[in-house]
Design a binder for these strands. Structure first.
Lengths: 110, 110
DNA sequence: TGCCGATATGTCGCATTCGACATATTCTCT
DNA sequence: AGAGAATATGTCGAATGCGACATATCGGCA
């Protein structure tokens, strides 16, 4: 499926506000990555606002701390499915997921 | 991850308007399945409105007709990632994906 | 500063999802 | 009804995503 480009990109550490629209990523690839970042941020916010640790969340997901860390960092190895499962497990509603999906990036920051 | 329940369920042919809220599926499982069904329907609508066949779509996705058929049927073997990729490939925007995700089921039909 | 809890990163072996092919079913014409 | 196109279903081997473990890094606080 030629995921190589995206993989390499995600691997090479982009910081938050940015989403690598400078390389030749297709519109679809950009959208996908942006959505993952947005979901990941929602997840971290939600977990932190509940005051629980990654380990605790991992437990309720039958997963591991390391995977949760990767999910919240939108690591290349995590699927949208897993991001959504995690959010739902923290009590997010479908509507909230939709909001995260639809949210455009805040800015282009200096 | 204990996908067994969902799998069995999706396997056992629920028709369109329904989403098996009668079995002991967790809230999260229901949400996930409903979202998949909603995305799948959006995909089919979008493809048909463009008047192209599953084979043509498969080609632009570097995939196969059989997989496209499964995607549109929300088969248990397809991921949300793939559903989204396919929709984006047909020109859907992030906003449209969000709408599909957020859309509640139309009814409970007699 | 040194400890400690939390988070991040790298790497495995196992499970799921993938594209592909064969084949069956359904649909639309005439 | 019969033919041909489109779609559906079952099954493979290959690719990707997963949880787990080890280990590194970060963040407070005594």
């Amino acid at each position: 499926m030629k995921t190589s480009k995206k993989k390499k990109l995600e691997a090479a550490g982009w910081k938050v506000g940015d989403a690598a629209d400078f390389l030749e990523l297709s519109r679809e690839e950009i959208a996908l990555v942006d959505m993952k970042l947005s979901l990941a941020k929602s997840l971290r916010d939600r977990r932190e606002s509940k005051g629980i640790t990654q380990i605790a969340l991992a437990k309720t997901l039958n997963s591991s701390q390391s995977r949760v860390a990767k999910v919240e960092r939108a690591d290349a190895s995590v699927s949208i499915d897993l991001l959504m499962r995690a959010l739902l497990a923290l009590g997010a509603t479908r509507t909230e997921l939709a909001k995260a999906i639809g949210r455009r990036k805040s800015s282009r920051a200096a």
